[in-house]
Computed example of a mutant assay.
Amino acid sequence: MKILHVTECVGGGVGRAIDQIPGLVSSHQHYLLSVRPDAQKPSGKGFARSMVLPDGHFARIMAVRRAVSELDPDVIHAHSSWAGLYVRARRIPGRVVYQPHGYALELGGNARRLAVATVEWLLARRSSSVAVLSPHEFDVAGRLNANCERVFVPNFPTIESSLRNTRTRLRRVVMVGRLSSQKDPTYFASLKQSVNAHDDTIDFRWIGDGDPASRSRLQRIGVTVTGWLDTPELVAELECASLYAHTGRYEGFPLSVLDAAACDLPVVARAIPAFSGSPVAQFETLAQHAGAILKYFSQEEDLRRDLKARNVELLEFMNAGRQQAALHQLYGITDFEECYAAAKEGRP
Rank of each mutant, 00 (worst) to 15 (best):
S194M: 14
N147T: 14
L53E: 04
D230V: 01
I221W: 08
S214N: 11
A269P: 02
S161C: 09
V225K: 03
F47S: 01
R169I: 02
A269C: 08
E149N: 08
L122H: 12
V257W: 00
E233P: 00
R304K: 13
R112Q: 00
V140T: 11
Y187L: 13
F253H: 02
S129F: 11
A343W: 03
K183V: 03
G142K: 05
Y187M: 05
E120S: 10
M175C: 14
A197W: 10
R220K: 15
E120Q: 11
A63V: 01
R310V: 09
S162R: 15
P279E: 04
E120G: 08
P212T: 10
A213G: 07
L238V: 04
T186A: 13
S50F: 01
R90E: 10
D184V: 06
T158L: 09
A17I: 09
A292F: 04
V52M: 08
A274K: 03
A124W: 10
G332I: 09
Y244P: 00
A141P: 01
L314T: 07
T186V: 13
K41P: 00
H198P: 04
V235Q: 02
P254R: 02
A89T: 14
H5C: 07
A241H: 05
E106P: 00
A39R: 12
L105A: 13
M318Y: 15
S26G: 09
E120L: 11
G15H: 00
D139M: 15
Q20W: 03
C339A: 15
P232W: 05
P266N: 04
R125C: 07
L315A: 03
L255Q: 06
H57C: 07
E316F: 05
L71V: 05
A341N: 11
R304P: 00
H77E: 05
P185K: 11
A63S: 12
R90N: 14
R270K: 10
T7D: 05
Q20K: 11
A115L: 13
V116M: 10
I18W: 01
A117N: 10
